[in-house]
Design a protein around this nucleic acid. Structure first.
Lengths: 93, 93
DNA sequence: TCTATATTTAGAAAATTAACTAAATATTAA
DNA sequence: TTAATATTTAGTTAATTTTCTAAATATAGA
């Protein structure tokens, strides 16, 4: 869980999650959204991947990244637990 | 929002939130739970306070800290937004 | 095979963060 | 007012993180 919170602590990485929310993207497409070297973005992607927040899939010469909402849900659970009685939100299905 | 995620990225600070979930505590009581100098804990409390995650109230010679669940809810909202269509969870009241 | 493209890895520099000790501030009680 | 307790602030050091450039790896197409 520590790796997940560390991963979420950087604004570039949170923006990457924002982008992946809309649709799956290759590493290069993600890098196009930032004024930063591709290797820096690659490093951020590695951190997100290690934390389990994104998944990668090789597509020919590209690598396609996607969100892993399972882990996001774990973070939500942690936060809901802190919030107190834990009954202000509940799962729909 | 960046300050909030940064604040959550440290395990000591997350444990402080855990403690405050149970009941309000003075700075000294919080420090007793850690093998770390009081000034280090004081610094962590300042970071949590700046992020809005905790509130402090002067009680005589003590300072009582409490959780601010409003901010936790903001984080939950951010995460729910990332999760996708945003309909897997909803607010109860 | 050769070349171009996509991405990651390695290594180093710069910036940020977390910890400590010592000193400062504020409150209570003698 | 003096002494004791609670907490924070200041200044420093060590560790971690972010970024860069250059080099390495892998794939696709001529």
């Amino acid at each position: 869980m520590n790796e997940v919170f560390k991963a979420l602590a950087d604004p570039t990485r949170r923006k990457i999650l924002d982008l992946l929310k809309e649709r799956d993207l290759t590493a290069g497409e993600i890098a196009e959204h930032f004024e930063m070297s591709k290797s820096s973005i690659s490093n951020h992607l590695k951190i997100l991947k290690t934390a389990g927040l994104v998944l990668d899939e090789k597509k020919g010469q590209f690598i396609l990244y996607s969100l892993n909402s399972t882990i996001l849900q774990d973070v939500i659970k942690w936060l809901l637990d802190k919030k107190g009685k834990g009954d202000e939100f509940h799962e729909k299905r």
